[in-house]
């Protein structure tokens, strides 16, 4: 049992220990899908949804594994769970929003290998959050991921218009930008407790 309050867990995952900028989780979509703001926003919605589903389910699965003394299967069952929830999101999107489905392209199945999602499941297990705390944690993490990727997309849209030297092409400049964003987010460090 972890004594942290729900609001603190949310805020901590959202701002203070932002998943992308302070814990380096989910960098592939952060670099890959942050070229346009709309796509970035939709990506963050899809990711948050998968995070929420997989976090609640993994809480249940973890209880079962503990009951049967099978903790060594945790990693394998979590990843299988995430893969199937991504499949679910993919089918729903394909049916209801083909345009978005095409826009996300290869990055949709790659949500499976988004470390932020497995990260949520693993951290909530290691910090022994109960059910409500897990929900709050996953929503906070998803919101934090969304905030980071949308901010980044906004910056990169502005970059398109500016005249840059040759060597800053591709990811080099994105990394620098992310560094500056991360520096800004360190300003939130005083808001609550430190890293757990």
């Amino acid at each position: 049992m972890n004594p942290e309050s729900l609001s603190f867990i949310f805020l901590s995952a959202f701002l203070i220990n932002n998943f992308v900028l302070a814990m380096f989780l989910g960098l592939c979509p952060f670099v890959g899908v942050s070229a346009k703001r709309d796509t970035a926003f939709n990506m963050s919605l899809a990711t948050t949804f998968v995070m929420f589903v997989s976090s609640t389910c993994s809480y249940g699965i973890n209880q079962i594994l503990i009951a049967f003394d099978l903790e060594f299967l945790r990693l394998i069952s979590y990843i299988a769970l995430i893969a199937s929830s991504v499949q679910l999101v993919e089918m729903v999107l394909k049916k209801f929003s083909p345009a978005l489905f095409r826009a996300l392209g290869i990055f949709l199945p790659l949500i499976t290998t988004n470390c932020a999602i497995l990260g949520v499941a693993l951290f909530q297990t290691s910090r022994e959050y109960d059910f409500l705390q897990s929900v709050s944690f996953s929503l906070g993490a998803g919101a934090g991921f969304g905030l980071a990727i949308v901010l980044m997309a906004g910056l990169r849209e502005k970059l398109e218009l500016s005249n840059l030297p040759n060597i800053t092409q591709a990811a080099a400049l994105s990394m620098m930008l992310a560094g500056i964003l991360s520096l800004t987010f360190m300003g939130f460090a005083g808001l609550g407790g430190t890293n757990a």
Binding site: M23, I167, M176, G179, L183
Partner: peptide, 16 residues
């Protein structure tokens, strides 16, 4: 954390 991004960015610039 910011150092990680900045150092990686610098290496990429150098390699480019």
């Amino acid at each position: 954390p910011p150092g990680g991004f900045i150092v990686l960015g610098s290496w990429l610039l150098l390699i480019n």
